[in-house]
């Protein structure tokens, strides 16, 4: 009887620890997880499923988490969950370079004059076009860091590559966009 009470008491304590840990480390990161999942999967339904899967895994391993860098910890869990999901769905295809990410521009037109809004739309459209034409590994790094606001370390955790590789892909991707803009500007100039 005493043994049962002790076991029940220990389970209750563990459950309270899991709840506290979950509230402290996981709940504040939900929106970031949703955004990154959307980038990784390319569609909202799969993103929802991936986040659910990530939360389940995080719950199970939260007792072993040391409390440092919760976002990077969660993103690593998400990456592993996604690898498993892709393996289950398409074992022959771990990455589809043809999957394009739907992008919706979110411009604050109220704060602009009509002229600057048109200029910004042109600039934004050129960048969007350039982003779509980037090699997938560069586009992926730009999505995680520039669009979703992850740090180099966090992006490295998602992609399972060294931080230096994240930097290199990101910087090369940005340079390609920058060069595309310059070419566009030169072409526009030659037409006028």
């Amino acid at each position: 009887m005493e043994y049962r009470v002790a076991v029940a008491s220990r389970r209750r304590r563990e459950s309270n620890d899991q709840e506290a840990g979950f509230n402290k480390y996981v709940l504040p990161e939900l929106e970031v997880l949703m955004r990154v999942a959307r980038s990784i999967t390319g569609n909202p339904t799969d993103a929802d499923d991936l986040v659910q899967d990530t939360l389940m895994r995080a719950y199970k391993s939260i007792e072993r988490f040391d409390g440092r860098y919760p976002r990077a910890w969660l993103l690593t869990i998400m990456r592993n969950a996604q690898i498993n999901r892709v393996r289950r769905k398409r074992p022959e295809l771990m990455r589809d370079p043809d999957v394009t990410l739907a992008i919706v521009a979110n411009t604050d037109s109220d704060a602009q004059t009509p002229e600057s809004a048109v200029m910004d739309l042109t600039f934004d459209a050129a960048i969007e076009q350039s982003l779509r034409s980037l090699p997938p590994q560069f586009r992926e790094a730009i999505h995680l860091v520039d669009i979703n606001g992850l740090s180099y370390n966090e992006a490295a955790a998602v992609l399972d590559i060294p931080v230096g590789t994240v930097m290199s892909r990101l910087h090369r991707g940005r340079k390609l966009i920058r060069n595309d803009l310059t070419v566009d500007a030169e072409l526009d100039g030659s037409h006028s």
Binding site: F22, L30, E31, R35, R38, M56, Y59, N106, D146, I147
Partner: peptide, 29 residues
Amino acid sequence: RIQSSLREHQQAPSADSMDRIRALAQELA
């Protein structure tokens, strides 16, 4: 300017999705 334009591509998750995930996370906790 390029970074600022790229940030405009950020897609906020829909309110419905966020509500569902929050409810799930709280239930799980």
